[in-house]
Nucleic acid binder design. Structure first.
Lengths: 191, 191
DNA sequence: TAATTGCTTCAAAAGATTCTGAAAGTTCCG
DNA sequence: CGGAACTTTCAGAATCTTTTGAAGCAATTA
């Protein structure tokens, strides 16, 4: 098949190119979001290319499509695999590995929320509570007012962190977004 | 008053020091959270010191407490002011400027959500929708299946982004966390 | 088993971000 | 004014992150 009729080939090639271009745009948008969330931009880009392409791609093709080195591809793919958002597969009689995107987007997001955001918040809550406790021991006389204000404020930070934790927990556990139980924390009350 | 009785001074000094230490710990925790959220760590630390201390501090003192240069203090304070989380004030007959923390924590958080997270998501949603539209124009014959799968997937990204947007909008607008209206987006449906 | 192909690792380069400190700029006072 | 006290700015230093590309490893084939 040396040459297909120009009338059909040329338009198709243009479309193909536009498609690539378009995938890139989406990939960059996802990359930006991921970066914003504290991941590496390239993780988002790579996942998106796999996700939108829809079929397994080899490392070499990913390098080409994303303009990254083989090393970067290998490391990024390892990261994505660790986060469970990309799977490896092989084709019979082909020595190369292929990669596919996890397609359950919510599953991905909730995993990240659980393993990253939640543990981060947890850590902070612990520090807040511990600090509050320690402050309350041995309050210097005549400093009660000052110290108790400080304790209150730490408590407010802890409250806020707990609200975040509650939100995330609800989102993550129920696998459906149903957040009614989270209403309590209003605001207004400043100090 | 050359020297207070040791019995009361020494314990107090220890307590003072412990208090500093403690504020530092909390400040570092907040700094870590802020960094996680894409701000500079030092912004979180500085705000926290002001917030917990409770009264206006001068730039020099902040430099000392945080172990940063005057330049860093100046820039960080400018940032914090831009975000509306620190206010300048002056004391009569004192040429220096003093700084106070905004104490309405929710106000701060919601402002950030509104100005940063929301606009970030907005941008992504637009790109997703635009890409989807463009893909649908001039689908190459015999590619309908592939293209429509791609379109679907972009739509799912857009949906997810919209859920995020909805959540944030609800949190931000109501100034009370009441998220019942956000239930719709369930999951399960993969493709 | 040797040769080939593809993957991973990692030291070093490139790039990005954050911090410093001194110079320039302001403000206030005598 | 002139100068002291304080603040801002910004070029360069320091630090942190990401990427490269070549060396080494592992799997497969002839």
């Amino acid at each position: 098949m040396p040459d297909a009729p120009a009338a059909s080939t040329l338009p198709e090639m243009a479309t193909r190119e536009e498609e690539r271009e378009l995938i890139h745009e989406v990939a960059d948008a996802v990359g930006a979001l991921m970066e914003f969330w504290g991941f590496k931009r390239v993780m988002g880009r790579l996942w998106t290319v796999l996700y939108l392409t829809g079929e397994p791609l080899g490392a070499a093709e990913l390098c080409e499509r994303l303009a990254i080195s083989s090393g970067a591809a290998s490391m990024t793919l390892a990261d994505l695999e660790r986060w469970g958002v990309v799977k490896r597969s092989r084709k019979a009689g082909d020595r190369r590995e292929y990669f596919e995107a996890e397609t359950d987007v919510w599953k991905m997001v909730s995993r990240v929320l659980r393993e990253r955001e939640l543990s981060q918040i947890e850590r902070a809550v612990e520090i807040f509570d511990r600090a509050r406790e320690r402050l309350l021991r041995a309050v210097p006389p005549g400093e009660q007012a000052r110290i108790s204000r400080m304790v209150d404020r730490i408590a407010r930070l802890a409250d806020l962190a707990r609200v975040g934790r509650g939100l995330l927990t609800a989102m993550v556990q129920q696998h459906k977004v149903d957040l009614a139980p989270l209403v309590r924390f209003t605001t207004g009350r400043r100090r």
